[in-house]
């Protein structure tokens, strides 16, 4: 029965390769960055640069590995034990949810500048070439026959920003009351044929599968899609108003302070996030279509960012906690508008 021996050899080999893998890991620091969907390209570039600079300055070799998905879904995975050293999520609420489970110490938001948010962004429209449906503003999205692509706000951070931007249009621009705003949202989501779990899935649906007439997208994601496919396939449209999107980052204290890890892990993780605010990183952020918080860098790239009125979460709902409960919680507005 030679094959049984073969099988045991395989298992033994597997064990050995695992052992060597962990042996190697001791020589360099491995950081896991758990992030949301449309940051893949940004962090691929930033990780490479960070590893070079950090080794040059401190002598420590760092390898940053990534996990991407819908922001809420990613936060849930960290809460369930995904060992992220840093989280870079689409909104502060998802980081707070991790902190609520005691994985991040209270007061995390004041540990880094700009409320722990190294860049901002906004939500824009991506339409088909020539904009055949004439989509210019949020009101155009609820017209019959317009297919709107947006991910599921329950799992995606970007989708929650999309929702808030539309809600801001209904309540702040049109000045509608609650009932009329809910009706507006019901019509909007009635035009949505597919709810992907993350922003990247929604972009794929719109661009690659060719579904829908308009994609509600991160400004950066729209820029990326336009770059990947050329303006012959997609065109970005800036609505007059939108929302001030603030992606948020934090070190996951529980995982960087884990026993058996030296203090160099925390040092590397903190440096990783702090350097997002450096001029070089801010420039990289701008190149990937996010809006840097550094005023000088922002000014240098001003041509990339057409002006538009951006409402804050505070203006729209008071706070993220309130927004989450009212709009996206169990039996919140999002649940009610889908009920037939």
């Amino acid at each position: 029965m030679r094959w049984t021996h073969g099988a045991w050899h395989l298992v033994a080999a597997a064990g050995i390769s695992l052992a060597t893998a962990s042996g190697l890991a001791a020589a360099e620091i491995t950081l896991l960055n758990v992030s949301y969907d449309p940051t893949r390209e940004l962090f691929t570039a930033y990780n490479r640069r960070f590893a070079q600079d950090y080794e040059a300055e401190t002598g420590h070799r760092v390898r940053v590995i990534q996990s991407h998905g819908g922001s809420g879904k990613q936060a849930r995975a960290v809460i369930d034990g995904l060992r992220a050293h840093v989280v870079t999520l689409a909104l502060a609420y998802d980081v707070q949810a991790i902190a609520d489970h005691h994985l991040i110490r209270p007061g995390w938001q004041s540990r880094l500048p700009h409320a722990s948010s190294p860049c901002t962004s906004t939500i824009v429209f991506l339409v088909r070439p020539g904009n055949p449906k004439g989509i210019r503003d949020w009101g155009d999205l609820v017209r019959p026959g317009v297919g709107v692509i947006t991910p599921n706000p329950k799992t995606s951070g970007g989708a929650r920003w999309n929702f808030l931007a539309a809600w801001a249009h209904a309540t702040r621009v049109l000045g509608e009351g609650e009932a009329a705003a809910v009706a507006f949202m019901r019509r909007l989501y009635g035009n949505v044929p597919i709810l992907d779990t993350g922003a990247r899935g929604a972009t794929t649906t719109f661009v690659q599968r060719g579904i829908g007439d308009v994609l509600l997208a991160w400004e950066s994601e729209a820029a990326l899609a336009a770059r990947e496919y050329g303006t012959g396939r997609v065109v970005t449209v800036y609505p007059p108003t939108s929302v001030l999107v603030q992606p948020t980052v934090a070190v996951v204290d529980r995982n960087v302070d884990r026993r058996g890890q030296g203090p160099e892990v925390r040092a590397a993780a903190e440096a990783y996030l702090r350097r997002l605010y450096s001029e070089a990183a801010q420039d990289l952020i701008a190149q990937h279509g996010y809006r840097p918080v550094d005023a000088a860098v922002l000014a240098r790239h001003a041509a990339r960012y057409p002006p538009l009125k951006r409402f804050t979460v505070g203006e729209i709902a008071g706070s993220w906690r309130a927004a989450q409960k009212r709009f996206f919680g169990e039996d919140g507005v999002f649940d009610t508008i889908h009920r037939p």
Partner: peptide, 20 residues
């Protein structure tokens, strides 16, 4: 399309609930 009430099957809803 994984749309609530329309094209969402029960196993997908389980994953959604977990992610929420």
């Amino acid at each position: 399309g994984n749309l609530p009430y329309r094209t969402e099957i029960a196993p997908v809803l389980i994953v959604m609930r977990l992610d929420e």
